[in-house]
């Protein structure tokens, strides 16, 4: 059984003009110890999906349908306090900006110790020892000294290391990393990604890595899910999806990454832009921009179907041919 199963997940935002669907019928699973990359443009619903899994959708956002199961047990309908006990202990999270993720008025040690002791009952002295071990684990030099320092005494990359330690210190089996390197220096990004990958591997923890950086996905993830306008366009093993994408949108995304070599006059781009949540076209959400669109794409909504060694939501694979 997969560690995390998400089935037909819907995230909705009730507004004055009606209910907007930010995540629409998304299904995927994450295996034990697997790293699943989630890519897509801004507003494609990547972060929303992550927030829904960890139960931290900002109100008025809410889960409008579907199921989320961790180890076979539903977690989408838990009470707030039960869900709180899942967070940190079973599912950890890392957010975009390490500069603001840490409370500036508490030492990093205090924040680590309180997290450890919230989930794993143990004496303060032992929790402190463990906190020092965690700082060492994420590569912070002189951890026994730095544990008593405040976040402002750490650099950006160091702070993100502390954030990783905080997300992992209660030993969750799944980490949701929402753009963990976007706010960092390019030279630091690679180190943080490598660190995240290493600590996950060592603990056999699974991860959902939300990003729009294809390079990060290629280096880190086992499988990748591509999202477009709140829907899952394609999911499959990283190498295959990147090299031989099934969905025209993925193909467009891959095509638009500039390559080293002769400098083209114009960068390749997908015509148009992603629709707003208020006017998602009928049929396939990608149809107005799709170079391979056929008549049916304008009124038939494609389902996610097995394609090659993954799955894609595209009518081209549903036997609908002109």
């Amino acid at each position: 059984m997969a560690l995390l199963e998400v089935e037909n997940l819907k995230v909705e935002f009730p507004t004055r003009k009606g209910v907007l669907t930010a995540v629409d019928n998304v299904s995927f699973s994450v295996e034990q110890g697997e790293i699943l990359g989630v890519v897509g443009e801004s507003g494609a619903g990547k972060s929303m999906t992550g927030a829904a899994v960890i139960g931290l959708l900002e109100p008025p956002g809410r889960i409008g349908g579907g199921q989320i199961r961790l180890d076979g047990k539903r977690i989408d309908n838990l009470s707030p306090d039960e869900m709180r006990k899942v967070r940190g202990r079973h599912i950890g999270a890392i957010f975009q900006d390490p500069l603001t993720s840490l409370n500036p008025l508490f030492t990093v040690g205090k924040q680590l110790i309180e997290t450890i002791r919230t989930h794993l009952p143990m004496p303060a002295a032992e929790a402190r020892k463990r906190a020092i071990e965690w700082l060492a684990e994420v590569g912070i030099p002189a951890p026994d000294r730095r544990i008593d320092q405040y976040p402002h005494q750490f650099s950006g990359g160091m702070r993100q290391r502390v954030v990783i330690a905080l997300a992992l210190c209660a030993e969750p089996r799944l980490i949701i990393a929402d753009e963990p390197t976007t706010a960092l220096d390019v030279s630091v990004q690679a180190q943080i990604i490598a660190l995240l990958k290493r600590v996950c591997r060592e603990r056999n923890a699974a991860a959902i890595l939300v990003t729009h950086d294809m390079g990060v996905i290629a280096e880190t993830a086992d499988r990748v899910a591509v999202m477009y306008a709140g829907r899952l366009a394609e999911i499959g093993p990283v190498a295959r999806v990147l090299q031989k994408p099934s969905h025209p949108y993925t193909a467009g995304l891959m095509g638009s990454i500039p390559r080293i070599g002769p400098r083209p006059d114009r960068l390749v781009q997908i015509e148009g832009s992603m629709p707003r949540l208020t006017d998602i076209p009928k049929g396939c959400a990608f149809n107005p921009r799709c170079p391979k669109a056929i008549a049916e794409c304008h009124h038939l909504r494609p389902e996610l179907r097995p394609v090659a060694d993954g799955a894609a939501a595209c009518l081209l694979y549903e036997g609908v041919t002109q």
Partner: peptide, 22 residues
């Protein structure tokens, strides 16, 4: 609304701790 409060929630801290300490 601050990020560190959101992160404190993600760490599974009790509401009491989040509101009255952080």
């Amino acid at each position: 609304r601050a990020d560190y409060i959101k992160f404190a929630r993600a760490r599974g801290l009790r509401n009491r701790t989040i509101h009255f300490r952080h």
